[in-house]
Computed example of a mutant assay.
Amino acid sequence: MLKISSLCEERLDVFLSDVLKQSRSQVVRLIKENCVCVNKKIEKKSSKKIKQKDEISILLPQTKEIKENYTPEFDITILHEDDDVLVLNKAPNVVVHGASSVKEATLVDWLLYKGYILSNLNGDHRAGLVHRLDKGTSGAIVIAKNNQSHQFLANQLLDKSMGRFYLALSDLPLKKDKMSNEKAIMRCPSNRLKKITTSHLNSLAKSAKTDFINLLSGKDCSLIAAKLYTGRTHQIRVHLADFNRYILGDELYGYKGKIKYNRVMLHAYLIYFIHPRTKKLMFIKAPMFDDFYQILKENFTQGEIDEKTSLDYLKFSFSF
């Protein structure tokens, strides 16, 4: 329990963001989870105007215990682990965190099942999560073991010093070897599962930027790399669809190939960030899963694959 007295009049979320040195979104989560009291009463409105000498109490959410019905029947490969950070290679079709609609074990459940102590800035269902991946997307994901590391890493997402290179198997190559999409992303009015792009920023649209490069072009598929500058839901998928290019298996955004896949062929291949304790820049590669790699081997030579997916080639191509 943390108690703070306000010294001025301002919005509750703005005040807490400044005092706790956390992002507004993290503060809003605390408020939504009934973790914030104003003058000993739970406050649910982030926009509440607090007054001078108001007493604000904060109870950080506790990490949930694993439910018996959600015992993970999968395992996750650890790419890096130390006292502050865990980097995992998430398998395809594993849900990252719980929600009311999720009736299966999640990545967070797996972490708790393994006995990890995680940061709790994002509450019960998102313990330790600095960012997320869609269910069908595989690859590198960063987990924070403590709140200090979580905040340090979250700040890097905001200032773009943390970055991610993705690999996507597409039906067609890009029209140009290098393309960028900076259109904002919003929910599709006619399909709540889908996102669309818009040229106009508004209260419903969030800014987004993705760079794309052609890596390999074949008769039946192409390998495209993507660099994220923002982390919007379905960002790579919707930005590629804007170019009339569709990821294999991504029927939601327009893939109409004869071959059916049991997931979207998108893989978070490389992640880089400054370590919260050592302050050293780290690059961590997540090996491709068999379903993804098999398609590559059927269409390209081993030499082509190794050359175009090397760290040096990707860094050079994206002018890192």
Rank of each mutant, 00 (worst) to 15 (best):
K178Q: 11
K135R: 15
A144W: 08
Q156W: 02
F318R: 09
F289I: 12
S310P: 11
T137D: 04
K285I: 11
M282V: 00
P72L: 00
K41E: 15
F74Q: 00
L88A: 09
S217D: 09
L252F: 00
T233D: 01
L314K: 08
C8V: 12
R232D: 00
G163A: 11
K49D: 12
G139P: 07
T137G: 08
S47H: 13
F316D: 14
G303K: 15
I56P: 08
Y313T: 13
Y269H: 11
H275V: 09
D83N: 15
I213G: 01
N147K: 07
G128L: 04
H97Q: 06
L88F: 02
K260E: 13
V38L: 03
L240C: 00
S57G: 09
S149R: 06
R237I: 05
L311I: 14
S47M: 11
L7G: 14
K219C: 08
S310V: 08
Q148M: 13
G257I: 01
N244Y: 11
F300W: 08
P92S: 07
F300M: 06
V14T: 13
F212S: 03
N181D: 14
M288K: 06
I42R: 11
S17E: 01
F165E: 10
V14R: 15
C37H: 12
A168E: 00
L204V: 10
R263I: 00
L60F: 15
V142A: 04
Y70T: 11
R237D: 05
K308H: 12
K175M: 10
I236A: 00
A208T: 09
I271T: 14
G254F: 00
L311C: 10
K315C: 10
R164S: 02
G257R: 00
M179S: 05
D306M: 14
R11S: 09
N244H: 14
Y261Q: 05
R132Y: 04
N191P: 04
